[in-house]
Design a protein around this nucleic acid. Structure first.
Lengths: 226, 226
DNA sequence: ACCTGAACACCGTTCAAGT
DNA sequence: ACCTGAACACCGTTCAAGT
């Protein structure tokens, strides 16, 4: 009979690794160090395991990153509360803001989704919910898809730019650098707006969304008239 | 005196490498093999040079990729023709379509810009031109920036999704797979629209842009009324 | 079934050395 | 000034072996 101590040491390391634990550890690394700081070897180490152990749960690195993208998509749709009593405009706004907030908490989320995202269950739920809102609001299928793509494109595009450029624009010397840059140029439109670029990201996000919603509302109205 | 043949062999390899040549070679690799297939060693080999020679022209891999992102941004704004006689709506549409076309010809462009893009000269020209159109159309600075961000966000977000999901959706068995997937679900909105998803990308891009333009036009009108 | 160790082919980057 | 060769610390992944 073997000493219990040894069994006790080995037992908890048996089957300890799960897909969920791996995905969570991967998200932690990517949040802290960006995608460029992610490696299967680091991931293994953070789980107290050799990197090769991961291959028992995932086919390869690509599949791990696809699972991370799916998990973040699940986070985006998961925090959506019941809002059936709200107008379609408010429903669009609430889910858009949720998406923005989740992406803000995972800086590399968008690149991850664009490079490794699959058509996953949460991704389909996102489609389903947005389409349901737009169809119920009165858009025919074809127009609903165009509106859906416009909204999703805007949300993720805006977020992508914010993630990349906001830190640069919010640096103390950004405006001075730009003014210096513009001195010998004729970038008059940029000159007159530079100061606004670094402020009010939340308001700007909402304002852009309102433009889109106004366009959609006008289209719904035109359909109702016929 | 040394034999000329040797000098002739060595001479053309002296100063052969330029930043432009490196960037072009990098674009070729990324277009053909995606970002994941890019390495400084491959890049060197494609130029007939050791990878370490690149370090004389660029500080590191990151700087090469930033230069690639800048070059593609230059392509996006470079093909914009003179359109001063068009309406602001058409000017927005033409430049949006140009951006879409360039991104279509460089599959990995968006990820590249979001991960390695800097506030470069062509990037500023893009801002300047779009803002000039919107300011001239009648928007105050703050609203012009919101509209600019909405348009740019939409263009790049839509394009990002198209690059990632269009190839998947256009596969022959996509609709069947989705129908199979939906059989035991209540994704009713998706069910009724699945077929539309794979078609008419150009029309959908235009339709989404029209929604945004309609919203902006309404806002301009409201400013004119005051 | 689940994990390790050794190995392979590949990375980015440095540094001293060559011309 | 521009490029190479050797070296270093890292990759992703495979495979046979351990429990």
């Amino acid at each position: 009979m073997e000493p219990l101590a040894v069994r006790a040491e080995i037992k908890p390391s048996r089957g300890r690794l799960t897909r969920d634990a791996i995905v969570q550890a991967a998200i932690n690394i990517i949040d802290a160090e960006d995608i460029s700081g992610f490696s299967t070897r680091k991931l293994g180490k953070s789980l107290g395991v050799e990197a090769m152990a991961l291959y028992h749960h995932f086919k390869n690195r690509e599949e791990i990153l696809a699972a991370v993208a799916e998990e973040i998509t699940a986070e985006i749709i998961g925090i959506e509360v019941d809002y059936q009593d709200k107008s379609w405009q408010d429903q669009i706004k609430i889910s858009a803001r949720n998406a923005l907030n989740v992406m803000r908490s995972h800086k590399g989320a968008l690149s991850l989704m664009l490079e490794h995202g699959k058509i996953s269950a949460p991704w389909m739920i996102w489609h389903e919910r947005q389409l349901a809102i737009l169809l119920k609001a009165g858009l025919p299928p074809k127009e609903a898809i165009a509106a859906f793509r416009a909204i999703s494109g805007y949300i993720f595009g805006f977020t992508g730019f914010e993630m990349r450029f906001r830190p640069i624009m919010e640096k103390k010397d950004f405006v001075n650098l730009m003014i210096e840059e513009f001195k010998q140029s004729d970038y008059n439109s940029l000159k007159s707006t530079t100061e606004y670029f670094r402020r009010d990201w939340d308001d700007q996000f909402e304002a852009g969304l309102d433009l889109l919603i106004a366009g959609i509302a006008a289209q719904i109205e035109s359909f109702n008239k016929v």
